[in-house]
Amino acid sequence: MDEESVRAALEHYTRHSAAGDEDRASEIYTEDAVVEFPQSGERFEGVANFREWRRDYPAQVDLEVVRVRGRDDFWVVEMRARYDGGPWSYGPAVYEFRGALVARETIYVAEGWEAPEWRARWRAAP
C-alpha cells in the first residue's frame, strides 16, 4: 500500500458513509475485519457486525482525513469527526491492511480544545 491508495480507500469510505450507503462504504474492509475502540473497550468482528451499527448510527457523522502516514500494510491516519454538525473531535485511527483492504481499524477519539495563549510565542504559524 502507498499513501495515495490509503487516502483513496478512506475517502471512498467517508464519501459513501456520508451519503448513507454503508454497503458501498464497507467495501474497503475484508469480510473478517475487526474494528476496535480502545477508549470504550469495544471490539467488532466482521463487516456484517459493524456495518449494521453504522447503518443505525443515531447521528449524522462528518469525517475528514487530515493526514496519512505509514508504510506497507500499517498506516496511522489523523482524522476529525463531528456529530450532527457539532464541534470537531480529533484522533488517530490505525489501519492494518491485508492487500488492498482494511483488516483492522483501531479508532481513538478526543475532543478538541483551544490552545493556551501562554504557549503562543513558541508555536509555529498555522
Rank of each mutant, 00 (worst) to 15 (best):
D2K: 09
E4F: 10
S5D: 05
V6H: 03
A8F: 07
L10S: 01
Y13V: 10
T14M: 12
T14P: 09
R15T: 15
R15W: 07
R15P: 03
S17A: 12
A18D: 12
A18I: 12
A19L: 12
G20A: 08
G20W: 05
D21W: 08
E22M: 01
E22C: 01
R24L: 04
A25K: 05
E27R: 12
E27G: 15
Y29H: 03
Y29M: 00
E31C: 02
D32F: 08
D32Y: 04
D32I: 12
A33E: 02
E36W: 11
E36A: 15
F37C: 09
P38C: 01
G41R: 06
G41Y: 05
F44N: 11
F44M: 02
E45V: 04
G46V: 11
V47M: 05
V47D: 02
A48P: 04
A48S: 09
F50S: 04
F50E: 03
R51L: 13
R51V: 10
E52I: 03
W53F: 15
Y57K: 09
A59P: 02
Q60P: 03
Q60E: 11
Q60V: 01
V61R: 03
D62I: 06
L63A: 00
V66E: 09
V66R: 14
V68F: 06
V68P: 02
V68L: 07
R69A: 12
G70I: 11
G70E: 09
D73Q: 07
F74V: 11
W75E: 07
W75I: 03
V76G: 02
V77W: 09
E78C: 00
M79Q: 13
M79N: 15
A81F: 12
R82E: 05
R82M: 06
Y83E: 14
G85H: 06
G86F: 08
G86I: 06
P87E: 12
W88K: 08
S89W: 13
Y90W: 14
V94S: 05
E96T: 11
R98V: 01
G99P: 02
A100H: 05
V102W: 11
V102T: 13
A103D: 06
E105Y: 14
Y108M: 04
Y108A: 07
V109W: 10
A110F: 08
E111R: 10
G112P: 00
G112K: 06
W113L: 04
E114H: 15
E114V: 15
A115Q: 14
A115H: 13
R119K: 04
R119Y: 04
R119G: 05
A120T: 03
W122Y: 08
R123I: 12
A124G: 09
A124S: 08
A125I: 00
